[in-house]
């Protein structure tokens, strides 16, 4: 039982990291960024490239090496996110929503099949073996590397929440989400803040990609597709545009999958978790933490 929770939390924290970027971008420019899952894939490939160019990493060094690569991948994917926004989305900012949505789908295919051309269609082994040194806590088998993954994810989310809620840039992000023109009148450089949001969101997805590569041990050009859909689901279940909602939605989805797989078998995992999510949406169409807004009419 505790083991199921632990496994669910690990996978759930990947979902949460990806869902955060989905939700932030939607919150600020109302764009469903379908290419967001592919940023996660790019993160994994950046990690793969860096690790392969070093040759093998001794198991004892795997955790510090992973952290360095994580940072590197975050910077690279963050910059890719900024570039995508600049080239593909900003010129369409005032176009009909559908046009931008199609652009996002186009960006997604471009990234997926671009990587396929470069790295081939077959899965690649992620060249770092996490040490499987583990210990028992509260009846769970926890490996040191798993613990590191979960702690890193938690730290990233904490830092993000701090930025959005307590800093001047974070206030500007929330203001643009509500009324870009009024934010403009406060002297906010709206384009720059939107670029910052793309950087942060993409860096979080890139981080999740590296972590997932290390956790699952293999990566491929389509790995972002399903997680993109799941992260989107997590963001909606939590209440899209709401940070804590995205975190909660991701963890919830991870837990449901973990329990579903254990109780009903792996093939039933997605049926179980999505059935429950549908039920949740039936009762709370705006998501668990969505629309907690007091609005005067």
């Amino acid at each position: 039982m505790m083991q199921l929770i632990w496994n669910g939390l690990i996978v759930g924290s990947f979902y949460s990291l990806v869902a955060l970027g989905y939700s932030m971008v939607y919150g600020i420019i109302k764009l469903l960024n379908f290419a967001h899952g592919d940023i996660y894939m790019l993160g994994a490939f950046v990690g793969f490239l860096v690790l392969s160019s070093f040759g093998g990493i001794p198991a004892a060094m795997s955790i510090p090496a992973l952290l360095v690569i994580l940072l590197l991948a975050m910077v690279v994917t963050g910059l890719i996110g900024v570039a995508i926004e600049r080239v593909a989305y900003r010129p369409l900012r005032s176009s009909p929503r559908l046009a931008v949505l199609i652009t996002a789908i186009g960006v997604s295919f471009t990234l997926e099949y671009g990587i396929r051309q470069l790295f081939g269609p077959n899965p690649r082994a992620f060249p770092v073996r996490l040490s499987s040194e583990s210990f028992d806590v509260l009846g769970m088998r926890v490996s040191l590397s798993q613990l590191v993954l979960v702690v890193v994810a938690a730290v990233l989310m904490f830092v993000l929440a701090h930025i959005v809620e307590r800093t001047r840039e974070g206030r500007a992000m929330r203001a643009i989400a509500l009324d870009p023109q009024a934010a403009h009148l406060m002297g906010v450089n709206v384009n720059r803040v939107i670029a910052t949001v793309f950087f942060i969101g993409s860096a979080l997805a890139g981080a999740a990609g590296v972590m997932a590569g290390a956790y699952y041990g293999s990566i491929d050009f389509l790995m972002g597709f399903v997680i993109g859909l799941k992260a989107f689901t997590a963001a909606v279940i939590g209440g899209i545009g709401n940070l804590y909602g995205a975190m909660l939605g991701g963890l919830l989805l991870g837990l449901l999958e973990s329990f579903g797989a254990a109780w009903l078998g792996g093939e039933w995992r997605d049926v179980f978790s999505f059935a429950i999510l549908i039920v949740i949406l039936t009762f709370k169409p705006t998501g668990l933490l969505g629309a907690r807004v007091v609005e005067r009419m």
Binding site: R168, R171, A172, R174, A175, L178, D179, A182, A183, M186, V188, V293, E295
Partner: peptide, 13 residues
């Protein structure tokens, strides 16, 4: 006004 932000956050903006 930024409707879902607090009065204080509006002022800080």
């Amino acid at each position: 006004i930024f409707s879902t932000m607090t009065v204080h956050d509006n002022l800080l903006l």
